[in-house]
Amino acid sequence: MKPQGLLSELELLLLLTILNLGDEAYGVPIAREVAEHRGHPVSIAGVYSTLDRLEAAGLVASVLGEATPERGGRAKRYFRVTRRGLRSVHDTRRVLTKLWKSLPALDAKEPA
């Protein structure tokens, strides 16, 4: 099948995070996991902006969940990766794996 185009770093991270979180994939845990993997805080608006783009491209789908008092009565939006999104992740992994094969090993004696 023809690849859909490579995913950016954040797009790939978001898709993998959503897959990892499963049924608990909504804004707060997604942003926390992405920040943990990246090693620095992320903007929740930036996360939603990318999710919005991924949703428009059909790579993720979302549904409104329950509203809780700690959220001021606002509903959570749960995300899931679509079949198309999963195919994009696989396509990206295939290309990256091919490129990583030619990655030279770091020589410990070599100066940085």
């Binding site: 929740i44 939603y48 919005d52 409104l64 700690e70």
Partner: peptide, 15 residues
């Protein structure tokens, strides 16, 4: 501000 504005506001308040 977008289709997810309400959820975004909820996430910020939750945090």
């Amino acid at each position: 501000l977008g289709p997810h504005a309400e959820s975004l506001a909820g996430d910020l308040e939750e945090e």
